[in-house]
Simulated scan of single mutants.
Amino acid sequence: MFHLYKDRIVLLLYCGFIFYLSHQPTLPMPMLFEHQDKIIHMTAYAIMGLLVWRVFVYKFKVKLWLALFSVLFCSLYGVSDEYHQSFIDGRDADVWDWFADTIGAGLMVLVLSRVEYKL
Rank of each mutant, 00 (worst) to 15 (best):
M1V: 11
M1W: 09
F2Q: 11
H3K: 14
Y5C: 08
K6Q: 12
D7Q: 12
R8G: 09
I9C: 08
V10E: 01
Y14I: 06
Y20M: 03
L21F: 02
H23V: 05
Q24E: 11
P25D: 09
P28G: 07
M29V: 15
M29A: 12
P30N: 07
E34D: 15
I39E: 05
I39N: 03
M42D: 01
T43Q: 02
L50T: 06
L50S: 03
V52C: 05
V52A: 07
W53H: 08
W53E: 01
V55M: 05
V55S: 02
V55C: 08
F56I: 07
K61F: 08
V62W: 10
V62Y: 12
K63T: 14
L72T: 15
L72Y: 10
F73L: 06
F73S: 05
S75H: 09
L76H: 04
Y77R: 00
Y77H: 11
Y77T: 00
Y77Q: 00
G78Y: 06
E82R: 04
S86T: 07
S86C: 06
D89I: 13
R91S: 08
R91K: 07
V95Q: 08
W96K: 03
A100Y: 01
A100I: 04
T102A: 13
G104Q: 07
G104I: 01
M108G: 07
V111F: 14
S113N: 11
R114S: 13
R114E: 09
E116L: 14
